[in-house]
Amino acid sequence: MNQNSDNTVANPLASLNDRKGGFDPAMANRMMSSIGHSGFVGMEYVGHGSDWVELAFDWRDDLVADPDSGIIASSAVISLLDNACSLSIWTKLDRFRPQVTMDLRLDYLRPSPSGARVFGRGICYHMTHNIGFVRGIAHNGDMDDPLAHASGTFIRVGNILS
């Protein structure tokens, strides 16, 4: 599989497996969101359960799709749910394992309005040896008033696949 062929750069998240007390999604998000695209979007840990993780980011004028309305770019919501769903798999597994997003679908139910904080909850509802099956919900603080629904799969990568 091509996406696995160059897995030479160690993922710092692997160091979380050396810690006692199981997988810590808050610390994992701190590591993921201190740099890179997740840092640009500004993803913060909100909470987690046995099979879910919720992250959020604050509205910012460089994250919008339309400067007149101020609605958030759909792509920022994808990034948020991608991370939350990925974290939900490690949380359910209680361990980090290298994986990549295989596919992700989002249904945009309504725009995320100007100024509103965006929350994204990822839920791992099933896991096999190689695949994590996830759902996601994005909202502005009320889960019963979602702005987007997601579903997707992540595939395990790296030498442990063989």
Binding site: T8, P12, G36, F40, S75, S79, L80, L104
Partner: peptide, 18 residues
């Protein structure tokens, strides 16, 4: 750029999606 990077050495899927 750093602002589109995901796991070390690769683009973030969200940035590609964007």
């Amino acid at each position: 750029a750093s602002k589109v990077q995901g796991r070390p050495g690769f683009l973030h899927g969200g940035a590609i999606s964007g």
